[in-house]
Simulated assay, not measured.
Amino acid sequence: MLTHTTARRPLGAWKSVLRHARQQRPTPVSLLRTMTTQTTPDTPSAVEPPPPPMPAATPKPSPPKPYLHSLKPQRPNTPTRSTFAVYPRVPSSRALTPAPLESYHAQQVRRLDRKGLRTRLFSKANPDAAKPGDVLQVTTKRGEPFAGVCLSIRRAGVDTAILLRNTMTKIGVEMWYKIYSPNILGIEIVWRRPKRARRARLMYMRQPKHDMGNVDHLVSEWRRTRNVFSSKGKAGKGKDASATGAKGRR
């Protein structure tokens, strides 16, 4: 009985030793479970090309060089500083790099207004330009011409627009027109405000106290004067023809 138990103990000890040795044995790389990907050897064909060189930075413009300005000393016996450096004016960044949106608007304006007449009609530099408070008439491709008092001029490049107000059948009607729209055939000044308006937006003219009402009488008078000036030559020719006919009859 005792010999049987002593014979089993060494066998169990050997099993535990072999089990520990099997766990400590190095495992081949192919059997390991890892999250890394297999890499290719660094062969000349598989080497990635070098990244392209970075573009060279544009050199910064050198600062303007000053020039020396000398003054004549008022007292020759007293030493004074008679020469100092004067630096020229630094150019603005807006002039060197114009905004892309402004360049695009200028390009569209040149395309839509080739002669520059509409630009000059609403330019602040033009003393005869249309101003808020004037009566303007807009002729479009479709519909009858619309005349009204200019309440506001919204200057926004190619999207420059004017707001006209008129009264039709005792109802106030306001219309926005974009001056560079291809649907507009012409914009004419019917009547000019005697005094310059002190505001850029005459929204107070919507009130009954300041509303000009219907401007059709100003439009009819303006058309009458245009017809007089345009038919003056024809009327003169008609008188001469009647006079010659009367002489021939005599």
Score class of each variant (00 low, 15 high):
141 K>C: 08
169 T>K: 14
158 V>A: 08
152 S>E: 13
142 R>S: 13
129 A>M: 05
127 P>F: 07
162 I>S: 01
127 P>L: 09
143 G>E: 09
108 Q>V: 10
105 H>R: 04
142 R>I: 14
165 R>E: 09
109 V>Q: 12
152 S>I: 05
109 V>P: 05
116 G>L: 10
124 K>E: 13
133 G>M: 01
162 I>F: 00
149 V>L: 15
148 G>D: 09
146 F>Y: 04
139 T>C: 06
161 A>N: 10
148 G>Y: 11
162 I>Y: 00
124 K>L: 12
123 S>N: 09
122 F>K: 10
136 L>K: 07
122 F>L: 15
150 C>F: 03
163 L>M: 07
137 Q>F: 00
119 T>H: 07
130 A>W: 00
160 T>C: 04
132 P>Y: 00
130 A>I: 14
112 L>H: 07
132 P>D: 00
143 G>F: 13
103 S>G: 07
131 K>Q: 12
164 L>Q: 08
157 G>D: 04
107 Q>V: 07
115 K>P: 03
146 F>A: 03
116 G>M: 08
155 R>H: 09
128 D>G: 08
163 L>A: 00
164 L>H: 06
124 K>I: 07
107 Q>Y: 13
154 R>D: 08
140 T>L: 10
162 I>R: 02
168 M>E: 15
164 L>G: 04
142 R>M: 08
163 L>I: 01
126 N>M: 05
159 D>E: 13
146 F>I: 07
147 A>C: 06
111 R>H: 11
159 D>F: 11
153 I>S: 05
109 V>F: 02
152 S>V: 10
134 D>I: 11
125 A>R: 14
106 A>Y: 05
148 G>S: 09
